[in-house]
């Protein structure tokens, strides 16, 4: 089997996947809210005082999004953005160091945020023990 990869630096690979992950979380949250309560990009644009095309381009990836905009969109979607930065760990028996930053982003409802943080703390507690 002769496979190949797209040539890209590890740091830029991490950055691109992070940006895409954030945008995708927002896209999927909007799809969910659209089904649940009929929320549209126009509704969001009106609340933010911008044209609908601005929101559309930001969600499609045709326009960069500031972290502030991520917070605004999450709020209007009824979600709370959570950024987790767990420390890099090397699994026992592993013969190489994981070189990709281990973080994750979730756009989650406020109610489940507590549950996620509790689970995270529980996991860390078990790992420490």
């Amino acid at each position: 089997m002769s496979s190949f990869q797209i040539t890209i630096s590890p740091t830029r690979r991490a950055a691109a996947r992070f940006i895409t992950g954030v945008r995708r979380a927002l896209q999927l949250a909007l799809i969910e809210e659209s089904k649940k309560r009929g929320l549209t990009q126009s509704d969001i644009a009106r609340e933010l005082g911008v044209h609908r095309s601005v929101i559309n381009r930001e969600l499609r990836g045709d326009k960069d999004m500031t972290m502030g905009r991520v917070g605004e969109l999450a709020f209007l979607l009824g979600r709370k953005p959570v950024l987790l930065l767990p420390e890099k760990k090397v699994s026992e028996g592993s013969n190489h160091v994981v070189d990709v930053p281990q973080y994750s982003v979730q756009v989650t409802s406020t109610a489940s945020t507590t549950a996620i943080l509790e689970k995270e703390l529980e996991t860390q507690h078990v790992a420490a023990a």
């Binding site: 797209i6 830029r12 996947r17 895409t20 990836g61």
Partner: peptide, 9 residues
């Protein structure tokens, strides 16, 4: 993101 980074993602 460059096109290469977009495609990788």
């Amino acid at each position: 993101m460059t096109p290469a980074e977009q495609l990788d993602a």
